[in-house]
């Protein structure tokens, strides 16, 4: 797109978030939308991160706090269930980890290059469980 000359884009500097028509964006999930290349959804900010949040499904109570407070629409939640972190759009702010109410937390920050499997193995264990063991 950066190669475009003055005569090749729409007048008035307008941008369209979707290709073609969309009847009701509020009713269509991202995976079912036809995003245009002009939608910032089509872009990644992964390179902003130094640390990334990793998600431990076993500890999650689906309180949705991380979803509510994520400034970057990067907590993927479906039917009130936390599914995953969207690493294309997560900027690594760490709010999700701060607001996670479980002990230990279901989300923790790790260095960007950290292997997920490895991180899950290193995850702090539930105190109660340890006592039972």
């Amino acid at each position: 797109m950066l190669q475009n000359g003055w005569d090749t884009f729409e007048i008035g500097t307008i941008l369209r978030p979707f290709e073609g028509s969309i009847s009701d964006a509020s009713a269509i999930l991202p995976e079912d939308r036809l995003y245009s290349q002009s939608n910032s959804f089509s872009v990644s900010v992964a390179d902003w991160r130094i640390e990334k949040p990793l998600f431990n499904k076993d500890l999650c109570i689906d309180c949705q706090f991380c979803w509510i407070y994520c400034p970057d629409m990067s907590i993927i939640s479906r039917d009130k269930k936390m599914v995953a972190v969207d690493y294309d759009h997560c900027k690594g702010c760490g709010i999700c980890v701060q607001v996670c109410p479980t002990t230990p937390k279901a989300l923790l920050m790790f260095p960007e290059q950290k292997d997920e499997e490895e991180a899950l193995l290193e995850w702090p264990k539930k105190e109660k469980k340890e006592k039972e063991n």
Binding site: A25, F41, P71, D72, S74, D86, D88, H89, C90, C93
Partner: peptide, 11 residues
């Protein structure tokens, strides 16, 4: 209806 990869600061 508000998308990520905007340029707002982290947090």
């Amino acid at each position: 209806r508000f998308e990520g990869a905007n340029l707002l600061c982290p947090g």
